[in-house]
């Protein structure tokens, strides 16, 4: 409870501690502008998502933050220059294409990375267990399925208790259950105070997880806000679905005086309206008939996304 209040405040309180600060980032690959002068900040404790179609520049942005590519612009992590190798001590990274050493076992792989990070090697087995790889700990990674490699990659991220997780499409290659578990894991880490930057083109996933979203297209950020505010901004209104006992023409007429478009399906009335008109409509209906059921559907990222990218 406290945490969600805090999260709502994140967007309003200016100067809330910043984890990642990207300023005028630009990257060109032999003539192709992959990222064009973008700036954004990821606040401490939030889940921030980069959302965009293929080739939008999400992975490029993440690679720049990690110093894997040359770029123009400034990037700071926890107030230090991102190129400083010490900042990597508290970062966990999940690459888009996971690749390990085929002839090492899962356990040896994790131990190698633990050594690189100066993390406790004894926790490796426990981590493998957490990601359902306990029984495969002594198998060579070369024999692993794509999903198993993805799980190992996620386990690798958590070595040395990171404060910041950077996840490039965390659920790609996982089955439905695997993806569900990973989303829960991401939430769990976030509850513990870990800041998360993730990128994805799975809208529902971003909607479920992210506090704030930056929508990228063709190397630019075309919108950045909470899912809710993005909906408002584009005038995509919540849908109201009301099941009533009896529908009459006079009732429809009265609703149409409030909102222009009314969809009727059997005993179901469906309208799109802003929250302040919601009560008005309900009052009108209650004067005429009884309400059996009622629900509000918030705008989905899908709608926002499609609308934005088209424009």
């Amino acid at each position: 409870m406290i945490k969600s209040d805090l999260k709502n405040d994140l967007n309003t309180i200016k100067g809330y501690a910043t984890m990642i600060k990207v300023k005028n980032l630009r990257k060109e690959y032999d003539g192709i502008v992959a990222v064009n002068n973008i700036s954004f900040e990821v606040k401490k404790g939030e889940i921030f998502a980069l959302l965009g179609p293929n080739g939008a520049g999400k992975t490029t942005t993440i690679k720049a933050i990690l110093g894997l590519i040359n770029y123009d612009g400034e990037i700071h992590i926890d107030e230090k220059d991102a190129k400083n190798k010490d900042v990597k001590k508290f970062i966990g990274y999940l690459p888009e294409t996971v690749s390990f050493y085929d002839n090492l076992t899962a356990l040896q792989t994790l131990q190698f990375f633990a050594e690189l990070k100066g993390a406790d090697k004894h926790k490796c087995m426990k981590l493998l267990g957490e990601f359902g790889l306990k029984d495969s700990a002594n198998r060579k990674v070369g024999e692993f399925s794509k999903g198993m490699k993805q799980r190992l990659a996620l386990a690798q991220c958590l070595l040395g208790n990171p404060k910041l997780l950077i996840l490039d499409e965390p659920t790609s290659g996982l089955d439905a259950l695997g993806a569900y578990e990973i989303r829960n894991k991401i939430k769990e880490m976030n509850e513990k105070g870990v800041t998360i930057l993730l990128c994805s083109h799975i809208l529902s996933e971003v909607q479920e997880l992210a506090d704030r979203v930056a929508i990228m297209n063709k190397g630019e950020i075309i919108a950045m806000d909470t899912v809710k505010n993005l909906g408002k901004m584009l005038d995509i209104q919540p849908k109201l679905k009301i099941e009533v006992e009896k529908i009459t023409d006079s009732l429809i007429g009265k609703i149409k005086e409030i909102v222009k478009e009314v969809k009727v399906d059997g005993n179901l009335i469906e309208v799109s309206c802003s929250p302040d008109l919601k009560l008005q409509i309900i009052n009108e209906i209650e004067k005429e008939t009884k309400i059996i059921d009622f629900k509000t559907i918030e705008p989905t990222l899908e709608e926002i996304f499609i609308k934005m990218v088209r424009e």
Binding site: K63, L66, G67, L68, K85, D86, K88, K89, I91, Y93, P95, T97, V98, S99, F100, Y101, F113, L116, K117, G118, A153, Q156, I166
Partner: peptide, 14 residues
């Protein structure tokens, strides 16, 4: 080419 270097360089090593 395989991508394993990206992962290594995300660790505290230059």
């Amino acid at each position: 080419e395989r991508g394993s270097l990206s992962l290594i360089l995300s660790y505290p090593i230059n």
